[in-house]
Design a protein around this nucleic acid. Structure first.
Length: 742
DNA sequence: CCCCCTACTTAGAACTATCACG
DNA sequence: CGTGATAGTTCTAAGTAGGGGG
């Protein structure tokens, strides 16, 4: 248990200055002040409006910290003239020009408001800490009492249903009341993520249960009883037999190699060819199990649900600065076969079972340290409050770190999210000059600067990702902006009557294809031609640029600015614009929602958020069309009847007839409404066939835009955000006024 | 300058619960 | 009152970005 609390040092990077001085828009940082102002305004509001009995809010005077020193190590190197550009081989990029780099300003507002003393006072009295457990218990007791009447359960009647409903509502209210309104509090000083953190450690998956002897694995036609370890891995493969993965050579090879590592020497001698393996019985056993689980009785399902609930109760929450916070992924990932996306060179490799000995725990020194499962111990317990994770381990397939962190509705995540949108909003104030500058840079004498300008143009205009370098052969071959290669774009002097068209075709994150034909400015086009000169397939388009250089430059234009901010900015701006353009107050609810979805969709298209069309898509679409047709018939009929009724009533003021007319009118109206709803649904669904809205909604769209829209349009918020989303965006829902502008 | 490591966000697929409909 | 489609949740892979050390 090494107690090395790492104190993150604020790094001051050596700044190199480029020949052309960059416009520095950063000083003063008015936007972040705004951020703070909003926070306190909201605070005031809520104190006015609500009887918040909590008292975590303690105002604290702010202490300014000095800004970073800038090392003005100015070095200017002249770049060769245009004729000299030589494409360099991929992988090794030599950057000839020096790059402007302002001090590595952290974009956090904290920077401006280091405050020390009051932090202690901020925390609520210590005794509260012990509470959650007993509280939880109480709740449970209450619940049980309600659910298990002493007498027979025949009496499970209205009363009880009502009671449970009441309980639910009550719980909801309670939840609302208990919600930690962290956005009304002061932020911690630089880098400190928490003051107190206590949790139970991660939850491990159950041990492997060997399958019965009557289920056999065959090799070369002969039954073979496998050792426990080999059997477990064999089952991983057998379970996936329905999946396309298991037909791929790479997958099979990787699997077989790793499987053999788990075998005993004897097994390894015997089993040398995957094609001679017969997993049939294991596979069907697995299918039966799945089937059986599906067919379980309600009671059995209930039992499982309850035990899951118990696990959630125990492991799913932590105490963070006196608040009970939900953990996002408290379960240790179970072992299995690695499933990469796309043509992943490591697909099929064995992802090993983790032991507590692999896991590092992070928590407060003065908290109850989580107990490792019986007979085990943790790899390490540390107390680092500059990070947000509760536990971490190294995964064996890629060798990367994995973390257990809090749920999206937590303070730690929410605050970061809020900040992200504030940075994006700040970009709004200087985007014009940044655009002007990169437009200028397209003419730069320095190749690197030109490349940077073109890359920035793509990132801004097309919302491309930054495109970090990746290790070759370790992952699927995907690219982002800076890692584009010459084969990923095709230049067309004219295409479909448009000039200077760039045709993009590459695989991006998660191997999602990006295909787009975009007319670009002449200057950009000319530059691209230049960049591609003397290069061949496999060469980097931007051979003098990488994401680090790009971001360095960006952060010199505005603190906190990186490539990905453009995605956030353009996504949110698009939503706001589209909502303004598409929706209007006089629409009915269904139409408003269609408009909202369309605006959302425009963003998803911009960000290239795709999904596999649902398997049942065609079928369900056809079904819907049938329904629409029949409804249309109904409508026609209803209209006819109405006409008929009117005819009969002509010149006749018999009340009865009039009533009939009214009735028919209503029927027609109802029919029309339903028809409209279905037609809208059909349109929406068709337009959404291959587009995933949720990613942008969750990660790119400032929720305040949506909240404000709902208020202005008089649309219930739960029409656009489900429970999870409302939880995640609680801060925005609470603070946003109808006049919010991104 | 380059490479590696850490920490955190973003991403679509798979799985599960719920709801509408016959 | 079951069933199938849809909505919501979980899972974990795949990105971004910045630090740090050689």
């Amino acid at each position: 248990m090494a107690q090395e609390d790492k104190v993150r040092k604020v790094k001051v990077k050596k700044a190199k200055k480029e020949a052309a001085p960059s416009e520095n828009l950063s000083s003063g940082d008015p936007h972040l002040k705004e951020f703070k102002k909003v926070a306190s305004r909201n605070k005031a509001k809520s104190q006015r409006g609500q009887k918040d009995t909590k008292q975590h809010k303690v105002k604290s005077p702010k202490k300014e910290i000095t800004d970073f020193e800038i090392d003005n190590d100015k070095r200017v190197k002249e770049e060769a003239n245009d004729g000299d550009f030589v494409a360099e081989k991929k992988g090794k990029k030599r950057k000839l020009e020096s790059v402007d780099c302002s001090p590595a300003l952290s974009f956090r507002p904290k920077q401006k408001k280091k405050k020390k003393a009051p932090q202690e006072g901020k925390e609520s009295p210590a005794p509260e800490e012990k509470k959650p457990m007993s509280e939880a218990k109480n709740k449970k007791v209450k619940k049980e009492a309600g659910e298990h009447p002493v007498t027979a359960k025949k009496k499970k009647t209205k009363e009880e249903i009502e009671a449970s409903r009441a309980l639910k509502i009550k719980k909801k209210e309670e939840e609302e009341q208990q919600r930690w309104r962290w956005w009304e509090e002061e932020k911690y000083e630089d880098g400190i993520k928490w003051k107190f953190l206590e949790h139970k450690g991660p939850n491990f998956p159950p041990e492997y249960q060997p399958f019965p002897d009557n289920v056999k694995f065959y090799y070369n036609g002969n039954p073979v009883k496998l050792s426990l370890a080999a059997e477990e891995v064999a089952l991983f493969f057998a379970q996936m037999l329905d999946h396309e993965y298991t037909t791929k050579d790479v997958f099979r090879d990787n699997f077989f190699k790793d499987w053999r590592k788990e075998m005993t020497l004897e097994e390894r001698m015997l089993i040398t060819d995957l094609n001679k393996c017969d997993f049939g019985e294991l596979h069907s056993m697995h299918r039966e199990k799945v089937e059986a689980r599906k067919n379980m009785s309600k009671e059995e399902k209930m039992v499982i649900k309850e035990s899951n609930q118990k696990i959630l109760e125990e492991y799913g929450y932590c105490m963070l600065d006196h608040h009970r916070e939900r953990i996002g992924n408290f379960k240790i990932e179970p072992p299995g076969l690695f499933r990469g996306r796309g043509e992943h060179p490591k697909q099929g490799m064995l992802k090993k079972r983790l032991q507590p000995e692999d896991v590092i725990i992070n928590c407060s020194r003065d908290s109850r340290i989580p107990q490792a499962p019986a007979g085990h111990s943790w790899k390490e317990v540390r107390h680092d409050n500059t990070v947000t994770w509760l536990a971490s381990w190294t995964e064996n397939v890629q060798g990367s770190c994995k973390y257990i962190m809090l749920n999206a509705n937590s303070k730690l995540k929410g605050e970061k999210d809020w900040e992200k949108y504030e940075v994006a909003r700040k970009l709004k104030t200087c985007v014009d000059s940044i655009r002007a500058q990169y437009h200028e840079d397209l003419k730069s004498k320095q190749m690197g600067t030109r490349q940077r300008a073109v890359a920035l143009y793509f990132i801004d205009k097309l919302a491309l990702r930054a495109g970090n370098e990746k290790e070759e052969g370790e992952t699927a071959d995907t690219v982002g902006c800076c890692s584009l290669r010459v084969e990923h774009i095709t230049l067309h002097d004219t295409l479909d009557e448009e000039k200077c068209v760039v045709e993009f075709d590459f695989l991006g994150k998660d191997c999602i294809r990006y295909y787009n034909k975009v007319p670009v400015s002449k200057r950009v086009f000319k530059n691209l031609k230049l960049f591609m000169q003397n290069k061949q397939e496999g060469d980097d388009l931007f051979d003098r640029l990488n994401t680090a250089m790009l971001n360095k430059h960006l952060s010199s234009l505005m603190p906190g600015l990186t490539a990905k901010v453009f995605r956030t900015y353009n996504a949110s701006m698009t939503l706001q614009q589209q909502l303004k353009e598409l929706s209007n107050c006089s629409e009915n609810l269904v139409e408003k929602l269609l408009s909202y979805n369309r605006a959302n969709r425009a963003v998803a298209v911009l960000c290239n958020h795709q999904r596999a069309p649902p398997k049942t898509f065609e079928q369900s679409m056809a079904n819907l069309q049938v329904k629409i047709a029949s409804r249309k018939e109904q409508l026609a009929l209803a209209k006819k009847e109405l006409k008929q009724a009117k005819k009969e009533a002509k010149g006749n003021s018999d009340n009865k007839l009039l009533a009939v007319i009214e009735k028919k009118k209503k029927a027609v109206q109802r029919c029309e409404e339903q028809l409209l709803r279905m037609e809208v649904q059909a349109t929406d669904r068709e337009e959404n066939k291959q587009i995933a809205l949720s990613t942008s909604k969750l990660n790119y769209l400032d929720p305040r835009i949506s909240v404000a829209w709902c208020k202005n349009m008089e649309v219930q918020l739960d029409k656009i955000y489900n429970k999870t989303q409302r939880d995640k965006f609680a801060w925005a829902i609470d603070m946003t006024e109808p006049d919010f502008v991104f």
